[in-house]
Design a protein around this nucleic acid. Structure first.
Lengths: 332, 332
DNA sequence: TTGACAAGTGTAAGCGCTTTCAGTATTATT
DNA sequence: AATAATACTGAAAGCGCTTACACTTGTCAA
């Protein structure tokens, strides 16, 4: 039923070393022998077993992308970029989805310890420096996407700058009474975005003492959810002086905020963050991040490091781009 | 740097067999020895290498989900279900994304031949019977999700029945001048949905001779795209007698159709198909498929078959559910 | 003709585990 | 006390491959 390299070797009248060489296109094999082996292999549908190759060889020809709960557009985009880069090689991509029920760090250490792949891409896995240090110590090639750790390759997004851009946009329009819809403080991206918002106001000489910074009570996904935005917006609408424009730390919250506005029949300019697929359809202005590019470039860098362990670290921070849609078009 | 079972055995003063037994929780090991081994392993951060276990053992403890271009909500939902089922076990889930640039069947045969996993879940991989037969012959445990092949386990959706339900809904409201926005004929789901549409009309005694069945010219993804729906809708709007209601073979096309309606400032009831995430936000009525359930159940079945190779085939067809939202709410 | 070299191939030693089988120490049974 | 049963452990044989090394030819310059 199942053939091994021995079967092929026997049938082709050669040694297993030769069969192996044919499949690895490594050392010279005479065209005649090669053809014979290939012919037999095709006939019986033989392919070298991944596990045996991985154990015996120096490379496994596998890249593993480690992602958290596979659930949103962000990963899909990043994965597409990764996919593109992998397609150019003879590596396989295996995706590992961290299980929500088990402690992350334990799971990751086990995964790396099991040495499944030649290199790992961590997508949106947010760990503390100590935790990354722990992982890094395991000595596997890796690149982080959407997180940063000083001793590793990473591609991240400058959350602060993104928020600066959004805030700047409104200030340039002459608006001064801005508000921020934020998420939980312990979310680093949320914190950074908030920082950018405040800093930009300061730069423009706008006092930040009484700037409304609100979030909802729904804490699912650290507050990055629609209900949270809805609740937050209602808080803003309940204020005696309603803000002129709103910066929001995520599109999904902005979606909730928009429903709240609609209910109260008001229209306040708003800029979200992430450019989720939905935003395009509902005309939500947003900060777009170069997701697929990060995936692609990150994978390229990983391959470099697999080929040459000594190559220099690559650490990039991209700045998001403001995509203007209808939620900022009615201004003026 | 990297430890093997020998290092652990030596440090713990036992044989490698014992270390192996500790990690496999198999035969009895005295608590004392077990603790000693575990302690040492934790200390140095040892985990058995996946490749060595896979080669030596009878099980690899890996399930592989094979998916096409990872790009839409459908897979994400299915994957969530798979994930849930996997979480209940000590298996790992590896996701394999078929590369668009290489011929599918070649890729799949190679993948299975390499024996990466104990079982395979094919999600939305549509092949002909001959092709499935080829794959099946490789003798791996597998279940198809969103496709069917008689000699294999599968979980599919009854596309025809779904379309029947949608069509039925409009007919029940007394409407008779219906239209269908379809996709390319070579897409089996599209063809089945069209079949259901026509059959239902027939059942109600509505002549199907001149029923408008249209599609756009954009063939990307077999016509399952927004532009296609937009173009198709414009064709319908250009008819001398505009239909009373529209059944559409996909939500994404319905989205395009809705923009076309908006442009011409008309509102015609429409039901899409798939219940993509967006539909909820734009209020598109649609046929919802039990995606996550299929993933969950499919994985369970796969485990059964891995445990007991002889167990009976499971072949299920689910019927989608009509989700009514605003695009069908204005009816009478 | 001879030696040097290249090209092609085979032999065999692992890679890091699992698992069978056999052995020893311990406990239970009569 | 003698025997049987049980609990635990180790030795060693693979799992299916890669690859260093050795070997056999054939070719060509000297």
């Amino acid at each position: 039923m199942s053939h091994t390299i021995y079967d092929i070797a026997r049938q082709a009248g050669v040694s297993i070393a030769t069969v192996s060489r044919v499949f690895n296109e490594s050392t010279k094999v005479s065209p005649k022998t090669r053809d014979k082996v290939i012919q037999i292999a095709e006939q019986v549908g033989y392919h070298p077993q991944g596990f045996a190759q991985g154990l015996a060889g120096r490379q496994k020809k596998v890249i593993m992308a480690v992602v958290p709960l596979l659930s949103n557009y962000f990963f899909l985009q990043v994965l597409n970029g990764i996919q593109d880069a992998i397609s150019e090689t003879d590596f396989e991509l295996h995706i590992y989805n961290v299980k929500p029920k088990e402690e992350r760090i334990v799971q990751l250490k086990r995964l790396l310890g099991r040495k499944w792949a030649d290199g790992y891409l961590f997508v949106s896995i947010h760990l503390s420096n100590e935790e990354w240090a722990d992982i890094h110590k395991l000595g596997q090639q890796m690149v982080l996407i959407d997180d940063a750790y000083s001793a590793s390759n990473y591609f991240q997004i400058n959350n602060k700058q993104g928020a600066c851009k959004a805030t700047d946009f409104f200030l340039e329009q002459g608006m001064r009474r801005l508000a921020l819809i934020t998420a939980e403080k312990r979310s680093i991206p949320a914190a950074k975005r908030q920082e950018g918002f405040l800093e930009t106001l300061n730069n423009y000489g706008v006092s930040t003492d009484r700037v409304p910074i609100v979030t909802g009570n729904t804490t699912y996904r650290h507050g990055f959810n629609e209900s949270n935005g809805y609740e937050a917006m209602n808080k803003l609408l309940a204020m005696e002086q309603i803000p002129e424009a709103i910066v929001c730390v995520s599109d999904i919250q902005a979606v909730g905020a928009l429903s709240a506005m609609k209910e109260q029949d008001v229209e306040i300019p708003i800029i979200g963050y992430d450019d989720i697929q939905l935003s395009q359809y509902i005309g939500l202005s947003t900060m777009r991040q170069p997701m697929s590019k990060m995936g692609y470039e990150g994978t390229k860098v990983l391959f470099h490091h697999i080929d040459d362990e000594q190559s220099d670290l690559v650490q990039e921070s991209y700045i998001p781009e403001l995509i203007q849609r209808s939620t900022t078009k009615n201004i003026q």
